[in-house]
Each structure stands twice: as C-alpha cells, then as structure tokens.
C-alpha cells in the first residue's frame, strides 16, 4: 500500500488526480515493459522524478492533458500518455517519453493516475486513491515517498540541470542566471536529499517554472 495523494484542480473539480512517488525503485525496467506492452492495468503515467520541477509543473501538465482529453483534442491515445507528451516542450511523443518517462535505470519515479477517465469494458475504469495505492504498492518495488498535502515534495528528486537542458532555460549567459554549472551544482545538492539547494535560489526556480509553464502552454502551435 503506497501513500497516494489525490488532487483536484480548480475548474475540473470532479476529476481526481492521484499522485504517488517512489524512490530506490529497482524494477523500472519491468514497469516500462508493461507500458510498452500497453497492459491496461498499467494505464498510468510513470514519470522520472528528476524531471519534475515542482508541483505546479506537474499539475499544469496534468491540467493540459486532462483538458485536451476532455475537449477531444488529445494528440495521444490515453490521458496518461498525453500527460507525458504535454510535459515536453516539443510535439514529439517518443522524445517526451525518453525525457520524462521512466527509463530502465530510473530509481525515482512519480506515478500519476487520472481517477475518472479510463474506459474499461469491465467497468474498472474509475479508480479511487486507495485502489491506486494498493496497485502501485504491489507492482512497484521501491520506497514510497509522501508527496505532501500540496504536492510540495514532488520536487525533492529534481535535477535542475537536466530540466533546464530540456526546456533550454538556464543556458550560460542567460539573464535568468541559471548557468549550466550552477544548475548542476544545485542538482547535486538536491540529490543529497535535504533539498537545501532550494532555499537560496527560490526566485530563480520560480522564474524557471514560470517560463516552463509558458512553454508547455504554447507548444505545438
């Protein structure tokens, strides 16, 4: 049984979003193979926790995915793949999975499940937070980490250097000041697990987050 937090976005109050985070995951390759086989039980968005900048980042992508799905303008087959797709700044699904999805070597992951969308013939589409927690607790071999009431913990394993690279923010010489070396240094601090790399450059991270949210919004146009 894994600790699942359920979020409700304003304006979509009837669509629960279950989020669950793991560290020290040892069977990422298995999870990935199930995704590739399109096993209907594994209709989840498994994300690399290093690539999630903040709760807003994750929720914004979730909103865009949910919105695209509900307005029938999804570019992908399921809302969960849409979420992975929406995270990437370019409209390339394979690339998005490569960057934001789990790889065989991932040790931290964030699982996202839209609680009310899956269309299953056997009527098992709607999942409550408990169902999700139970299922993930069984299939994921790793230590569950509580993401916090506001999802503030999703940023715990983030790698600012890698995120900055994908979104092309924080390049050296940029006025944001997130120089590449700088970002890597902070990322290492974060990896230590105490997240005190956050305390000083909070403004810069917020600035980065704002740019990233904007890029996700205008992508594919």
């Amino acid at each position: 049984m894994a600790a699942v937090r359920t979020f409700f976005l304003p304006h979509y109050p009837t669509y629960p979003i279950h989020i669950c985070m793991f560290q020290d995951v040892s069977n990422a390759a298995y999870l990935r193979s199930q995704l590739l086989e399109a096993n209907p039980d594994f209709d989840y968005a498994f994300l690399d926790a290093a690539m999630i900048l903040s709760a807003s980042h994750l929720l914004s992508a979730s909103f865009l995915a949910l919105h695209a799905h509900l307005t029938h303008r999804s570019k992908t087959r399921t809302p969960h793949s849409e979420l992975v797709f929406r995270l990437h700044p370019n409209p390339n699904i394979g690339e998005a999975y490569k960057r934001f999805g789990i790889s065989d070597s991932s040790s931290t992951l964030i699982a996202v499940k839209f609680g009310k969308l899956s269309k299953r013939e056997d009527g098992k589409g709607d999942m409550s937070g408990e169902d999700v927690g139970k299922f993930l607790g069984e299939v994921v071999q790793g230590k569950c980490v509580d993401v916090g009431e506001q999802g503030e913990e999703v940023e715990r394993f983030r790698d600012l250097g890698r995120i900055g690279k994908v979104y092309k923010v924080g390049a050296p010489g940029n006025k944001n000041g997130n120089g590449n070396g700088n970002g890597k240094k902070r990322a290492r601090e974060d990896a230590d697990g105490e997240g005190d790399g956050d305390t000083e450059p909070v403004d810069k991270v917020l600035e980065m987050e704002m740019v990233i949210l904007g890029m996700m919004t205008i992508k594919g146009s």
Binding site: F63, L64, K175, E207, V211, L213, T217, I218
Partner: peptide, 13 residues
C-alpha cells in the same frame, strides 16, 4: 519572461 523582462507569466491556455 525568458529574457528577464518583468511581465506576467503564462500559466496555461
């Protein structure tokens, strides 16, 4: 926003 001019950020759309 990228260049550091102070404007409201785009959050969604």
């Amino acid at each position: 926003r990228k260049e550091g001019v102070k404007v409201p950020g785009v959050i969604g759309g």
